[in-house]
């Protein structure tokens, strides 16, 4: 086998050995993986389609029906199966979250590397831009943007607008993190040496910097995913989702608008929220553990208990 592959394999094995012992990380990976599997195999997990109305023997729609054998999570105001909407909703929520997260990660890494590597006025400009974005309240900005873009009546799905707006606004934390990491790597000996022998910028970034920060980018992307999923659910709840392709947030928008709370239909508003928590908590746990493994923080501080002394007999 190619020696580079062997090296990669050994690194991955080492990584797995450390990761395996971390319970929080394993729990996070479990949550994320199950959510993805539910989204991928949605049609296998339910006999119904998300738009299908369930009816009783006389043909009347079974609205707000509590959980039963036929509908494990009951039905909504239009008699549709909540469980079916939930697993199909995973597709929308995760797709929007993942695509938006990847866009944010890409912009953040690009800006972070550029700012950190070139420094000077480029760095100054990009960092002030992140400062400005940090101060402007994000939700009002998104709402105004989405509303304006919708007004243009472009022939695109509302989901595409959501993906772009979230992706184009949530790259600031990634950019800062990557920038600080690039700054430390830039000072290392081999980068100086590479530059001394006349290596070009692109070569240095690709061969020396990118491989070093890649793990951090991965860890940060997982964290960004959780933000993206949460923001998507909020925007969908406020009615900016696609009603024909309901995500978990859209389900909650329907549930709230159609008085699921006053009707006592807890099976309608509890599951989508729990699903959102499931996915975001999974990403947060996984992302935090990955970041901690790559970037270990303080081992202990000065007021942490007392040192132990084995006293003399």
């Amino acid at each position: 086998m190619n020696p580079r592959w062997l090296l990669l394999k050994r690194n991955l094995l080492d990584f797995w050995k450390t990761f395996r012992r971390n319970r929080m990380g394993l729990a996070g990976a479990f949550l994320v993986l199950t959510a993805i599997l539910a989204a991928v195999f949605a049609p296998l997990l339910t006999p119904y389609t998300p738009t299908e109305t369930m009816r009783d023997a006389e043909g009347r729609a079974l609205t707000f029906a509590p959980p039963s054998v036929h509908a494990p999570l009951g039905t909504d105001d239009a008699g549709r199966d909540v469980w079916t909407q939930l697993v199909y909703g995973a597709r929308i929520s995760l797709t929007v979250g993942f695509l938006a997260g990847f866009i944010a990660m890409f912009i953040g890494s690009l800006f972070g590397i550029t700012a950190g590597y070139f420094g000077g006025w480029v760095d100054n400009l990009l960092m002030r831009l992140t400062d400005v974005l940090l101060v402007i309240p994000d939700l009002p900005l998104i709402l105004v943007l989405v509303a304006t873009v919708r007004q243009l009546e472009l022939k695109v799905s509302p989901l595409v607008i959501l993906i772009l707006v979230i992706g184009l606004l949530y790259w600031t934390s990634t950019a800062r993190l990557i920038r600080s990491q690039v700054l430390t790597i830039k000072e290392r000996q081999y980068v100086y040496r590479a530059r001394a022998i006349g290596a070009g910028n692109w070569h240095i970034v690709r061969k020396h910097i990118l491989p070093q920060i890649m793990p951090l980018i991965v860890a940060n992307t997982v964290l960004i995913l959780s933000t993206a999923i949460l923001i998507e659910s909020g925007l969908a709840f406020l009615g900016l989702g696609d009603p024909t392709q309901p995500s978990w947030g859209t389900m909650l928008n329907f549930a709230f608008d159609r008085n699921a709370v006053s009707n006592g239909a807890w099976w309608f508003y509890l599951p989508p929220g729990l699903a959102i928590i499931w996915a975001t908590l999974g990403c947060v746990l996984l992302g935090n553990v990955l970041e901690e493994m790559l970037n270990p923080r303080l081992a202990s501080h000065h007021l942490e208990g007392e040192q132990s002394i084995v006293t003399q007999p």
Partner: peptide
Amino acid sequence: RLLPVTARITSGQVLFNGKDLLA
């Protein structure tokens, strides 16, 4: 006796004017 919590004094004496500080 200002070591961090990860440290452990395993044996010995620190006599200050004849008094063991570790005790």
